[in-house]
Design a protein around this nucleic acid. Sequence first.
DNA 1: GTTAGCATGTAAACAGTTACATGATTGT
DNA 2: ACAATCATGTAACTGTTTACATGCTAAC
Lengths: 184, 184
Amino acid sequence: MNVTTLCLAILFQEEATGYEIKKMSTDGKYSYFVDASFGSIYPALARLERDGFVTCREESQPGKPARKIYSITEAGRARFAANLLEEPEPDIFRSAFLLVTMYAPMLPRHVVSRAIDIRVNQLTQEIEKLTQLAAEEQTPGAHWAIDYGLCCFRQSIEYLNDNRERLEAIAGTANDSPLPAAAE
Amino acid sequence: MNVTTLCLAILFQEEATGYEIKKMSTDGKYSYFVDASFGSIYPALARLERDGFVTCREESQPGKPARKIYSITEAGRARFAANLLEEPEPDIFRSAFLLVTMYAPMLPRHVVSRAIDIRVNQLTQEIEKLTQLAAEEQTPGAHWAIDYGLCCFRQSIEYLNDNRERLEAIAGTANDSPLPAAAE
DNA sequence: GTTAGCATGTAAACAGTTACATGATTGT
DNA sequence: ACAATCATGTAACTGTTTACATGCTAAC
């Protein structure tokens, strides 16, 4: 999914500024679609407005730049809806954590332990985020998605806790490691 | 992870050609790191060779372009190892399937059903791939990673099978859908 | 006094994809 | 006949990030 579609997806549900879209795509409910930066969101919104898929009203604030609040148009709704009807692209999972596990034999034990700790932490935070989202959220589709996410993340943490010793035992067992520190 | 690091990661474990690296990053064991195209792999290998991180020997084949088999150097091993010691970046999950679930109320039921079918299929294939990989694979780190993946994927399929009716029941319940087809 | 949050926007730089060029072999 | 697999490589294009510019307010 590209930034333009992300903007339409969010504006389909609620009005928002570019700043708010950025937050939602980085931490919020829409973080499972794209993580976009300001440098891609602002130009995307300008293009969407130029092409009639969104409209914009300004709200001036004393001392700050005016908030530009975007709303989706009928053309915008239709475009996003048509998008949703297409076959969804495959889900993507990319993991620097798994890279560490694959090369565990050549890594010092503490590096492997730290990687597990970081991953468990990340998952815990993700669960907290979803729990909070569920409390605020009303739409039934979002609720289903949140429940699914919670189930997957909990299972993942459980697996990590149950199997971390097995992985830590592998650490540092390679005898041809290019890391002098591996022997420590 | 970028394409250059991917090449080093693979060449750390085994010699390979650009073509083989492409396959491994798209379907194989390394598909959880980056999915790279030829247009990025060949230039990356050329840069790595120029900078002394890999070496290359050619194996001519009648009727085909010569295979350029790359091997990692000590400098390359050191560079990749240093990379692994850094704090791993957070794992990334991006899902077009979850987008469909979130907007289920405005979608016709068959679109939602199809999205679930596609996702279950994708997960099933992922499990088959990992099972096959486990049969071929020797390194203990890779085995741990595969077991972890299998656990997550199985759990995910189970959830989808147990909760698909609940999601399908939501489909088409929005009365303000921009899709005329939603009423079918 | 310094960091974080709010708020918009631009331009250069970068990484990567897509499409093209070339061509034999094997399977359907 | 046609598609897929093997095999390398380049060039144009695209989308996105990073860094910059600007500036107020509130918290620590």
